[in-house]
């Protein structure tokens, strides 16, 4: 454990240093994370304003602001992108260099993920404050709901990270993964509630969303933080589902990793 902590802290330090070499790029990526929910907020606000009760999917305009503002933050802190990088590592032979080390390549990716979030905080933090000032979100969460909401965000981040990594392992079979990555991100946007609150979706799609993990990586922690999940049992059920998905993704990772290594062909390296 001490060995791993030493290795991961060194990887984190170096990943931060690498990130800082590309300040412009990380600002642009962070900007996308701000613009996307703001555009969706503007669309939903316009929809709500056109209705007689000034509501959309049961949300008032300040609640719509709270939904997309919270989604902006949750989306940023739970972001994972290994589906975009894994196939590149394999095609260019960089995976071979990583596999020669006595540490799982996943730790490097995790350090890179954390490094991005640490480095971008200086930019997105003030932006979040500015956005909150401009769109005036309305929160109704009690301190307990808020704390449980934070726990839900942590679980959502871990879930998204491991599930993305598991999907990324498909690159060991297909070499190119872009299409699979897009399907994953498309589902995460649509049935995860990133595009629209799930109450705005037709009933059958909401049933599908309940079965899939994406809701628990976005809409669920957002609604917890907003204070929209008022029944405690419902909150705990959601947290349990998150934990179950997390355990399942870890088991899946272990199994797939072993099989992936067996069929690794070490192309280009």
């Amino acid at each position: 454990m001490r060995r791993l902590a030493r290795a991961v802290s060194a990887l984190l330090r170096v990943e931060i240093a690498t990130m800082l070499q590309y300040r412009g790029e990380i600002v642009l990526w962070s900007t996308w994370g701000l613009v996307n929910p703001l555009v969706l907020y503007a669309i939903f606000k316009a929809g709500a304003m056109s209705n007689d009760n000034h509501q959309m999917a049961g949300l008032t305009v300040p609640q719509i602001a709270a939904y997309y503002f919270t989604m902006m933050i949750v989306g940023h802190v739970t972001a994972a992108w290994d589906t975009h990088e894994m196939s590149w590592y394999i095609r260019t032979g960089r995976m071979s260099a990583m596999l020669l080390r006595p540490i799982l390549p996943m730790w490097k990716s995790m350090a890179g993920n954390l490094a991005y979030k640490i480095c971008t905080l200086a930019f997105v933090g003030p932006m979040w404050i500015l956005v909150a000032f401009l769109i005036r979100p309305e929160f109704n969460a009690t301190p307990k709901q808020f704390m449980l909401g934070l726990l839900a965000v942590v679980l959502a981040g871990l879930m998204n990270y491991f599930l993305t990594y598991v999907v990324a392992l498909v690159a060991f079979w297909t070499t190119k993964l872009d299409a699979v990555g897009e399907i994953y991100f498309g589902l995460a946007m649509f049935v995860g509630g990133r595009l629209a609150p799930l109450d705005a979706l037709p009933g059958p799609i909401r049933v599908v969303a309940d079965v899939l993990p994406f809701k628990y990586m976005a809409a669920f922690p957002v609604e917890m933080l907003m204070g929209r999940i008022t029944v405690e049992a419902e909150a705990f059920r959601g947290l349990m589902v998150q934990a179950a998905w997390l355990v399942a993704s870890l088991i899946l990772f272990r199994c797939l990793w072993a099989v992936a290594l067996k069929r690794y062909t070490a192309v280009s390296g």
Binding site: R6, A7, S9, A10, L11, R13, V14, A17, T18, Q21, Y22, G93, R94, S96, A97, L100, R101, P102, I103, G269
Partner: peptide
């Protein structure tokens, strides 16, 4: 096929290697 961090001085790669 590099064990080195492309964007950083070599010392950073040596440091990570020593930790790993």
């Amino acid at each position: 096929r590099s064990q080195l961090q492309w964007d950083l001085p070599a010392t950073d790669s040596f440091y990570v290697h020593s930790a790993i």
